[in-house]
Design a protein around this nucleic acid. Structure first.
Length: 327
DNA sequence: AATCCGTGCAACCGCCTTTTA
DNA sequence: GTAAAAGGCGGTTGCACGGAT
């Protein structure tokens, strides 16, 4: 019964990885694929546990990782998805395929969460901490609808995330097969895979484009089965998705594109959340010369919160092409 | 110049889920 | 069907670094 006994962890190295260790891990995975993480360290000549190797690979060495600063769209996506999914970083990461869950988590904790707090928005619920002024604006109703819709969206995104994971797995298997049998033809070398240790990570804004690539939405669409059934984890929600009918993957993509790229979002949600220092100043009562008419002051505080809720609401508001929840 | 403090991030830890013998 | 290994995830920690005092 069970598997072979676990290794004793005595004598295994911990802490920061050296360039030599990275080199070994990369060389091994490039040659053989990772296979069983458990047995990898010994085969690769590393005195690490498999878990540590997996973490190093997925969070740092993987060639398809985009490093450096998060751009506007990425920040917005994180905030919006966090409003729907909470701290489910891996699910959020499936919508930012070149970012790791760890990186997103760190970025949320160190940047985005603080911004929300300064705006007077609870980073957990994404609701204003003081509901009263917003209620007077008639937003409590919106918040209720948002909450309801968010439940539906959460179930939907959960299914999407699972599909993305499965698709990713297929790609990884494909990659592993390829690397193990055709590793001379994969088009990247140790040198191209290795991070630049002579520069700080953030200085190196070059994206490590992967020849193998992680899942993209277009790839997802191709890999999605003709008929999909999923059941909401807590609600018992059950949905059937017919082919060519209300393709919610397409709709979600469209939502991403239109809500994030379109119609002056800079002036509302994005400008509010992504304004960095200008936001800090506007909420601490200082005058902000660059933010123009919408900067500073209590009136704009409420207006900004309204924009914030509206933005999330727009994000989760199903477009006409999306099937309504079938409760 | 030395020290303190805040920030950012890589990596670890522990728990939960999935897989497999 | 069951138990244990393996994988995955989220929370947390510790260290390096830079700016302020």
């Amino acid at each position: 019964m069970g598997r072979s006994p676990c290794c004793d962890k005595l004598g295994l190295k911990k802490g920061p990885w050296t360039p030599e260790e990275d080199q070994k891990l990369l060389a091994y995975i490039e040659e053989h694929g990772h296979g069983s993480w458990r047995s990898l360290p010994e085969k690769a000549g590393l005195h690490r546990c498999g878990k540590s190797c997996r973490l190093r690979w997925t969070n740092y060495l993987r060639p398809d990782i985009k490093r450096g600063k998060f751009n506007l769209q990425e920040e917005q996506t994180i905030i919006q998805l966090h409003a729907l999914l909470g701290n489910r970083w891996s699910a959020i990461a499936t919508h930012l395929p070149k970012r790791t869950d760890n990186e997103i988590k760190n970025y949320w904790n160190t940047h985005l969460k603080k911004r929300l707090v300064k705006m007077g928005i609870d980073p957990v619920t994404h609701k204003p901490k003081n509901e009263t002024p917003l209620s007077s604006l008639g937003l409590s109703k919106n918040a209720a609808i948002l909450s309801h819709t968010a439940q539906w969206e959460s179930a939907r995104l959960e299914a999407e995330a699972r599909l993305a994971r499965e698709s990713k797995l297929l790609h990884l298997q494909h990659y592993q097969t390829k690397t193990s049998s055709h590793h001379h033809h994969h088009g990247f070398t140790h040198k191209s895979l290795l991070p630049n240790w002579t520069t700080k990570p953030n200085e190196d804004q070059q994206q490590l484009e992967s020849p193998t690539s992680t899942v993209s939405f277009s790839e997802m669409k191709e890999s999605i089965p003709a008929k999909i059934e999923f059941v909401g984890s807590s609600t018992g929600l059950s949905l059937m998705k017919e082919p060519d009918q209300n393709d919610w993957i397409n709709s979600t993509m469209h939502e991403f594109e239109t809500t994030q790229m379109g119609e002056g979002i800079e002036e509302g949600f994005t400008g509010l959340l992504l304004g960095g220092d200008s936001i800090d100043r506007s909420f601490s009562g200082e005058k902000n010369e660059t933010a123009g008419e919408s900067s500073g002051g209590d009136c704009n505080y409420y207006e900004d919160n309204k924009n914030y809720l509206d933005s999330i609401f727009n994000f989760v508001d199903p477009s006409p092409s999306v099937s309504p929840p079938m409760f």
